[in-house]
């Protein structure tokens, strides 16, 4: 692969992720789309199409739900397709690369999502000053960081070999990885804490515990079930309140 082809493939991979952030999840990072595009860049559209479509069926269920980080389909399929075409190993070669790489590469997305907490805090500072341009800057900076989180690993993996990237990730001590993972799992508590702080007057606080307990003890109930119950309850609440007001 020439360096320009490597660069273009990495750039496109980053771009599809950037557009997922900035244009509302257009599904461009799916293997079905990325495969043939990578094929076009490398001059073998047919193989790209075939590999992309096969990987699409493999990765059918992978999707971020509620801020989780599933295996990284985009990097996996871009790399898998590129290596399948250049090494001539076809679909088997693509699978061998795409699936493990997708798992390793999800770490980079996690880095980006952890790091972007800083851009929110900087945006807080700009908001305090009424500087909307500063806030916008943080939005774009965050998106560019997300772009790099896909662009750089793809570039490195294509340039140095995917084994190199896997080795690199494995070289990070397990302690440090679990430290970073713990930070990632704790940070949403800050978001929820802030939200509670904005929402609650002390008298309403027990309602938070009601929602929490239902979801914690009956996971299958789900957010939709809780919303269903909640709507029924608050409708009762509001109608009763309105009746009292009318009588008074």
């Amino acid at each position: 692969m020439s360096f320009s082809a490597i660069f273009i493939i990495s750039f496109i991979t980053g771009l599809t992720y950037f557009l997922r952030r900035f244009m509302g999840d257009c599904q461009l990072e799916r293997p079905l789309v990325l495969g043939p595009v990578v094929g076009l860049v490398l001059g073998d559209f047919r193989t790209g199409l075939e590999v992309g479509a096969s990987l699409e069926l493999v990765f059918m269920g992978a999707q971020a739900i509620g801020g989780s980080v599933p295996s990284n389909v985009a990097i996996g399929s871009a790399l898998g397709t590129a290596i399948a075409i250049t090494s001539g190993t076809g679909l088997e070669g693509a699978m061998m690369v795409a699936v493990p790489v997708a798992v390793v590469a999800s770490t980079f997305e996690m880095f980006a999502k952890t790091f972007c907490a800083f851009s929110v805090h900087l945006a807080d500072k700009y908001a305090e000053k009424g500087d909307w341009k500063g806030i916008s800057l943080m939005v774009h900076a965050g998106n560019i960081f997300h772009f790099l989180a896909y662009f750089i690993p793809t570039l490195l993996a294509l340039y140095l070999g995917d084994q190199y990237v896997t080795d690199l990730m494995n070289a990070v001590p397990a302690n440090i990885m679990s430290g970073i993972k713990a930070v990632g799992s704790l940070l949403p508590a800050l978001g929820f804490g802030l939200l509670l702080n904005n929402l609650s007057t002390r008298e309403f606080m027990p309602y938070f515990f009601i929602g929490f307990a239902i979801a914690a003890y009956i996971p299958s109930f789900g957010v939709m079930g809780i919303a269903f119950l909640g709507i029924a309850y608050v409708a009762l609440y509001a109608f009763r309140k309105l009746n009292q007001e009318e009588e008074a």
Partner: peptide, 30 residues
Amino acid sequence: SFQIKAWMEAATILGLIVVGGLAATWLNVT
């Protein structure tokens, strides 16, 4: 306005219930 007030109070309660559910669903500290 008194009706809006009642419904807004209802929205706050619903918000807290749903946020409680979201926190239990989306927060994964083990």
